[in-house]
Simulated scan of single mutants.
Amino acid sequence: MNLHKKSLQAILLASLGFSVITIHQVIAGNDSFAKQRVKVVSKHKLTPASYKINRQKAKKGYAYSAKLATKKFKLANYPKTSFRATYKETLSVNGKKRVYYYIKSTNIKKSVAGWVWHSYLTKSSSAKRISITSKKSLESLIKSAPDLQPTSTIRSLPNSIYDKYRSVFNKEYNVGNFSDGGTFDHHTAVIYVTDSDLVQAVSYAI
């Protein structure tokens, strides 16, 4: 009886040992952040801006899914790709705060996106170098930006471009003259609503 009991204990211990080893391998193999405690401290939307990968700092860096759950892509594989950052998130990783940007590629056919540590990114200075030489080039620039959200590049164009292609901006951003002359006084207009039930709705619409 004692021999049978000892044999049973040995089998159970061996089984438990195998289970522990198996579980450990699954957790360790998932991702470098799998064992760490990750919490979202804050998150807010950014004014869309263009970034490039910092080649020197990001040699071994990756973009991640939400809360650093899994790796999305290796940053070193996209040295010439332009990215647009739209969100900023502060995470607590094992009690230490780290800032991440959500970026998405803008100039490659197969788009990639993910959360990247902010120090792996370098803000692009394309706004200073861009040259609008035709209506078509302006329309292409506008189409590359989020709908009805002009990027810093578009907002930094010379006044001469706005004057020359006024009709394009009116069409793409709904900034045409929709009111009679004299309606606005110092960029301000008074609206009278005769039906009191519609006051709140009109206020929200404005």
Rank of each mutant, 00 (worst) to 15 (best):
V38I: 10
R98H: 05
F184Y: 14
F73Q: 00
L12D: 04
K57T: 14
K128T: 09
F33G: 00
V112S: 09
A127M: 04
A145G: 04
L3P: 06
N174H: 09
Q56N: 09
G181S: 05
E89A: 12
Y51T: 03
S160V: 03
V40P: 13
R55N: 13
G29L: 02
K123H: 02
K136Q: 10
K52E: 06
A10N: 15
N94A: 04
L91T: 00
E89P: 01
R55Q: 06
Y162M: 03
H187S: 09
K74H: 07
Y120A: 05
S42C: 02
L138C: 08
Y192V: 00
K164R: 06
A85S: 00
R55M: 05
I142S: 05
K74D: 04
D180N: 11
A76K: 09
D163K: 09
R37K: 15
V26G: 07
T151V: 03
H187A: 04
V20L: 14
V193Q: 07
S156Q: 11
E89Q: 14
K45H: 09
Y162T: 01
D163C: 12
T194F: 03
K43N: 11
A189K: 07
W117S: 11
N94S: 05
K35G: 14
F33I: 00
Y64W: 09
Y62Q: 08
S203V: 01
V40G: 01
Y100N: 03
V99L: 10
I11F: 10
K39T: 07
A14N: 11
K39W: 12
A145W: 00
K96H: 08
A76F: 07
H186K: 05
V93S: 04
Y173P: 03
K123Q: 09
Y101R: 05
S137N: 04
N94E: 06
K123L: 10
L157A: 02
K136L: 05
I132F: 01
A49D: 04
K135M: 08
K96M: 09
S111E: 13
A34E: 04
Q149V: 14
S92N: 12
V93C: 00
K67G: 02
R166K: 15
Q36H: 13
G29M: 06
T153C: 11
K110I: 08
D197T: 08
K164C: 00
S65E: 01
Q56F: 04
F18W: 14
A49G: 01
A145P: 02
K60Q: 15
I103M: 03
E139H: 14
T153V: 14
P146W: 14
V41D: 11
K80N: 14
A113R: 07
E139L: 13
K97G: 02
N177K: 12
P48W: 01
R155H: 06
G182L: 11
V168W: 07
K80G: 11
K80S: 12
N159A: 13
S137I: 00
K109A: 12
S19P: 10
A10C: 13
G95D: 00
T90L: 14
A201C: 05
G176L: 12
S124F: 05
S32G: 13
V116T: 04
S111V: 01
G176Y: 14
S7P: 01
D163T: 10
M1S: 11
W115G: 02
N107S: 06
N159H: 12
K80C: 10
K72L: 14
R155L: 15
S156N: 08
N30E: 13
V26W: 08
G181L: 08
L16I: 12
Y64C: 03
D195R: 02
